[in-house]
Design a protein around this nucleic acid. Structure first.
Length: 436
RNA sequence: GGAGAGGUCGCCUAGUGGCCUAGGGCGCCGCACUGGAAAUGCGGUAUGGCGCAAGCCAUCGAGGGUUCAAAUCCCUCCCUCUCCGCCA
C-alpha cells in the first residue's frame, strides 16, 4: 500500500497536503524523499561495482577457456579484483537494504491523498449526498391506534429468527445463530443480491476462500497495520477474511491485463470475521456489531481514467439493493479525516432502522485509485505492447447482511408482531409473512 | 500425512558451474512478397529498478548458502502432478 516513489518525487506538495488533510504527519514525506535520494545514490554505486565484478568473472572464464591455468597468476589477479569488488558490494548492499527497509516503512505511513472533491475535515464535514425513502418513526399509527416499533433483537427473538444466547454458548458473544426463517433470510438475501449484481449489473460471481495466506493479507493491507482486527490461524499462517475484498482483490495480484480485459467487475459472497476487540455496549446490541457476518462485496478493476465514474456506478449498484428491499437510506460522502488511510474517495450507505431510530452503515464504497494496485502489482497495458501501468481498484459492500436484516426487521414489523417479507424476497423466502 | 517426479519468457520446451548476454518451437506484432490473403522470408516480442542517453543492475517457484562465477551444486519453504493413507 503506497503512493509510489515516482509520485513522491513528482508531486511531494500534493502528497504533503494530502497527509495534512487526513490528519497524518506530513514530515514523513520529507524524510522519505531524503531516503529516496540516498537509495538512488547507493543503487548507482552498487550497480557500477556489480558491473565490474561481472566483467572480471567473465574474463576469468574467458582466460581459462583460452588456456590459462585456473590456478595461475593471471587468473589469481582477476579473481582478486572480483573478490574485492564483492566485498564492497556486500557493504553497499547491506546499507541499501537498510535504507530501503526504512524507506518502505515510511512509505507505508504516507496516506493516499483524497480526491479534490472530497470535503476536508473530520466526521462533522461528511456530506449527506442524498437520502432515499421514507424515514419511519418508532411510534407509528395503524388503524387509529398508535404502536411502538421494537428493536430488531426483540423482533428476531420473538419470531425465532436468531438465537444470540446459544450463539454465545457454542462460540462466544457476537456469533449469532440464525434459525428457521432467520436462516432462510440469510440465504435469500445472499441469493437476491448476487442475482441482481450478476444478471442486471453484469458482474462476475466469485465464491472465494474464507481464509487467506499472509501474502494476500499483506496485499490488501490487512497486515501489518490491521492485524489485530483479524482472526489468525498461526499454525498454518492463515487469516480468516474480514471481507471478501481480501481474497477477491488478490485474485489478480502480480498480473498484467490487456486493455480490452478491463474493466473487471466481481460480486462475491463471503462470511466475514472481525475480532472487533474492545467493542461492546449499546451500539453493539443485537446483531449490529458481530464477529461473524455475511456480506456480498463488489470488487472492480478499472482503467485509471474510468475509476471516478466507476465509483459512482458502484455506489449506485449498492443503492439498487436497498431500494428494491424498500429500505430508507442515505449516502454520505466521507470527509478526509473520516474516510480512512488508503481510500481516495469513499461513500458510506446508511440504512434507516426505525426500531432503534438510528442510521446503520451497511455499505462502504471506495476508490483506492492505484494505491492498492501498487502493492499488489496489478497492472494493464494501455496499448498492445505498451509499458504496463497500474490499474485502479474499487470495492463496496452490496450489502452487509446483519445490519440489513436488522433494518428489515425494524422496517417490516407489524403491530401484531408479525413480519411482512419484502416483496423482492418472497420468491426466495417462499412466504410473504412470518409469524411467531 | 508418506513415497516419488516436477516448477525456465504468454504457451510448449532446451539447458548437469564460465561459449546463458537463457537457445528452439508455437502464439502475437511489424516489414517484405501478394490484387487481397494463405504459405514463406526477415525483424521484433518478460518484469522491475538506475540513467539525459548509450547502457547498466536485478529476477529461471520463493528465500538462504557454496563459488571469482549458479537456471545448473547444497539447505529450507511454497506450489503442481502420480501413487499410498485419511476424509466431508
Amino acid at each position: 500500500m503506497s503512493i509510489g516513489l515516482a509520485r513522491l518525487r513528482e508531486e511531494p506538495d500534493r502528497i504533503r497536503q494530502g497527509a495534512i488533510d487526513k490528519g497524518e504527519d506530513p514530515s514523513i514525506i520529507d524524510a522519505a524523499l531524503a531516503l529516496e535520494g540516498k537509495r538512488r545514490d547507493l543503487l548507482g554505486e552498487s550497480g557500477l561495482l556489480k558491473a565490474e565484478r561481472n566483467a572480471a568473472s567473465k574474463q576469468i572464464g574467458e582466460a581459462i577457456r583460452g588456456g590459462a591455468a585456473p590456478s595461475g597468476p593471471e587468473v589469481a589477479a582477476l579473481r582478486q579484483a572480483s573478490t574485492d569488488a564483492g566485498a564492497q558490494i556486500e557493504k553497499l548492499d547491506a546499507e541499501l537494504a537498510a535504507t530501503e527497509a526504512q524507506l518502505e516503512e515510511l512509505m507505508l505511513r504516507i496516506p493516499n491523498p483524497a480526491d479534490p472533491d472530497v470535503p476536508v475535515g473530520d466526521a462533522s464535514a461528511n456530506q449527506t449526498v442524498r437520502t432515499w425513502g421514507e424515514l419511519l418513526p418508532r411510534d407509528a399509527t395503524a388503524d387509529g391506534e398508535t404502536w411502538t416499533r421494537r428493536p430488531h433483537w426483540e423482533v428476531g427473538e420473538s419470531l425465532r429468527m436468531f438465537d444470540l444466547e446459544r450463539g454465545a454458548k457454542i462460540t462466544g458473544s457476537g456469533f449469532p445463530v440464525y434459525t428457521g426463517y432467520g436462516s432462510r433470510l440469510q440465504r435469500a438475501l445472499i441469493d437476491f443480491m448476487l442475482d441482481i449484481h450478476t444478471s442486471e449489473h453484469g458482474m462476475t460471481e466469485i465464491w472465494p476462500p474464507a481464509l487467506v495466506n499472509s501474502a494476500s493479507a499483506r496485499g490488501t493491507g490487512q497486515i501489518p497495520d490491521k492485524e489485530d482486527l483479524m482472526y489468525v490461524v498461526p499454525r498454518d499462517d492463515l487469516y480468516l477474511v474480514p471481507t471478501a475484498e481480501v481474497p477477491v482483490t488478490n485474485l489478480h495480484r502480480d498480473e498484467i491485463f490487456e486493455a480490452d480485459q478491463l474493466p473487471l467487475r466481481y460480486a462475491a459472497y463471503s462470511p466475514c470475521f472481525r475480532r472487533e476487540a474492545g467493542a461492546a455496549g449499546k451500539d453493539t446490541r443485537g446483531i449490529l456489531r458481530v464477529h461473524q457476518f455475511d456480506k456480498v462485496e463488489m470488487v472492480f478493476f478499472e482503467k485509471p481514467e474510468a475509476s471516478a465514474e466507476a465509483l459512482e456506478w458502484l455506489t449506485g449498484r449498492a443503492e439498487v439493493i436497498l431500494q428494491r428491499l424498500g429500505l430508507a437510506y442515505r449516502v454520505l460522502l466521507m470527509a478526509t479525516k473520516d474516510m480512512g488511510f488508503v481510500q481516495a474517495k469513499k461513500y458510506d450507505l446508511e440504512v434507516w432502522a426505525p426500531g432503534v431510530e438510528r442510521w446503520l452503515e451497511v455499505s462502504s464504497c471506495s476508490n483506492f485509485r492505484d494505491y492498492q494496485a501498487r502493492r499488489m502489482a496489478i497492472r494493464y497495458r494501455p496499448e498492445p505492447g505498451a509499458k504496463p501501468e497500474l490499474v485502479h481498484t474499487l470495492n463496496g459492500s452490496g450489502l452487509a447482511l446483519a445490519r440489513t436484516v436488522a433494518a428489515i426487521l425494524e422496517t417490516y414489523q407489524q403491530p401484531d408482531g408479525s413480519l411482512v417479507v419484502p416483496e423482492v424476497l418472497r420468491p426466495y423466502m417462499r412466504t410473504d409473512q412470518i409469524r411467531a
